[in-house]
Design a protein around this nucleic acid. Sequence first.
DNA 1: ATAATAAAAGACTAAAAACTCTTTTATTAT
DNA 2: ATAATAAAAGAGTTTTTAGTCTTTTATTAT
Lengths: 143, 143
Amino acid sequence: MFSKTCEYAIRAMIFIAQQSKSDVRVGVKEIARGIGSPEHFIAKILQDLSRKGLVLSLKGPTGGFYLDNKTLKCTLADIVKAIDGDKLFSGCGLGLEYCSDAKPCPLHHEFKKIREDIYKTLQSTKLGEFNDQLAKSIGFLKR
Amino acid sequence: MFSKTCEYAIRAMIFIAQQSKSDVRVGVKEIARGIGSPEHFIAKILQDLSRKGLVLSLKGPTGGFYLDNKTLKCTLADIVKAIDGDKLFSGCGLGLEYCSDAKPCPLHHEFKKIREDIYKTLQSTKLGEFNDQLAKSIGFLKR
DNA sequence: ATAATAAAAGACTAAAAACTCTTTTATTAT
DNA sequence: ATAATAAAAGAGTTTTTAGTCTTTTATTAT
């Protein structure tokens, strides 16, 4: 469904969102431990998301990654779009370049509904929102 | 959604199903042209599907790939499983190894529905079935 | 000011996916 | 029987994705 990079990105952002509730910046090392990802790899990914404005960061002691009220409104769809692009939401299921509503491939209509469902689900989940119900499932973000 | 290999596989199988209606075996060259794929690559893929019994083949002059009444009942889900495995249908959306109904990740329930939808759609589409409506959309299998 | 800390940047390696080429084997028409 | 045909098999290469390592830059506490 998503690239590995994108899976790590989502997990990291959820992790950072948790910590940001208690107004604490979290370092790459802690994030990597928290979500079970390679340390340098998640660093690269977060640098990318940071450049794109989806997460905030501060260098130096007490520095790290964090989210403010604005970035907490970021949806999972935003993250997926930033990392994997939007082919999951709009591309043809069979990889056909010229497939469209006007010239549909044999599976176009079936896939359209599925793609819309995926988008709706991801678009309706904001990082700041599922913090509460997440408290229960803490510790399930790794491996 | 699917690997490129899997996209080619589905397109090729649909193409072969069309031709098999008129009881004609179709060669790799023709398939590659028909679906807009690299010739040697689709050959490899079909060899794999042939070994797994999803498509039939015959060597030599007038040889090629074809489907009989049994293999025409093959569903798109069968093809996807044969090529990409079943991680799309059963894996965790966030790539978490130990995510399950009992220990769900933050997105488990949302994704469960989506994955089931995808499976149902692919499982309910048999190669032999959508031949008729396909006749209209012939020529949309490439590029 | 300085040392310690932590992200940013960039260059690199490893593994997987996508794709190619050549040789072998099976089939069929002559 | 033989030559032509077409898939099977296997060993490549290329490209993309995943992951690592080292150096630089910004920030903060002392």
